[in-house]
């Protein structure tokens, strides 16, 4: 049996205040440009340093919004495994992330709830920092299996209430 087909994280194993393992990543210009082009974001401040400096007043090109979302998703599902299903994601990029920065991701469980359909919801507080200074803050709501037989991805219609 494919080991990916068995949930690795179950709702009952979690506690409020629990922390996700941190993740660190050194950002390069390639990181920024790959993320921008993968998200079909052709705006020049994500690939043209002169434009970013002159028009945005920033010191360099910087990570774009949809790519920041993709980074958060990767961070969350690294932890949940493939059975984790994202219901909501919200974030504010307070200060841009530039080439040369080492991003550090942190996450904390702020609430645990089971809805009327038996779906196990985990609320997370998220943070991206560089050298201890917060750059982006966010929150997420992710469904994880209530038990070994549950699979959030199979929930449809009224059984999925993000």
């Amino acid at each position: 049996m494919n080991t990916n087909s068995t949930p690795r994280l179950l709702f009952g194993d979690l506690e409020v205040g629990g922390r996700l393992p941190p993740l660190s990543h050194r950002v390069t210009a390639t990181t920024v440009v790959l993320g921008a082009l993968a998200s079909r974001d052709w705006r020049p401040m994500h690939h043209d340093k002169d434009f970013a400096i002159e028009r945005n007043g920033t010191r360099d090109i910087f990570i774009n919004t949809p790519n920041n979302a993709a980074w958060f998703e990767r961070y969350i599902t690294d932890w949940t495994g493939p059975f984790g299903r994202l219901g909501r994601l919200s974030f504010q990029m307070k200060t841009p992330v530039f080439p040369g920065d080492e991003m550090r991701f942190d996450g904390t469980i702020t609430a645990l709830a089971t809805d009327g359909e038996g779906c196990g919801w985990v609320d997370l507080e998220l943070d991206i920092s560089v050298d201890g200074q917060t750059r982006t803050v966010g929150t997420a709501r992710v469904a994880v299996p209530a038990d070994a037989a549950d699979n959030p991805w199979k929930r449809r219609g009224a059984r999925w209430q993000p």
Binding site: N4, S5, H25, G35, L37, A38, D78, G81, P82, W153
Partner: peptide, 25 residues
């Protein structure tokens, strides 16, 4: 693939057919 590669997302749901079938249909 481009998106997963840009952020190092190795979630097998997006890389492995068998997992995708079993988990997400």
């Amino acid at each position: 693939y481009n998106t997963c590669a840009a952020v190092g997302n190795g979630n097998p749901l997006y890389w492995d057919d068998e997992t995708a079938q079993a988990v997400a249909g």
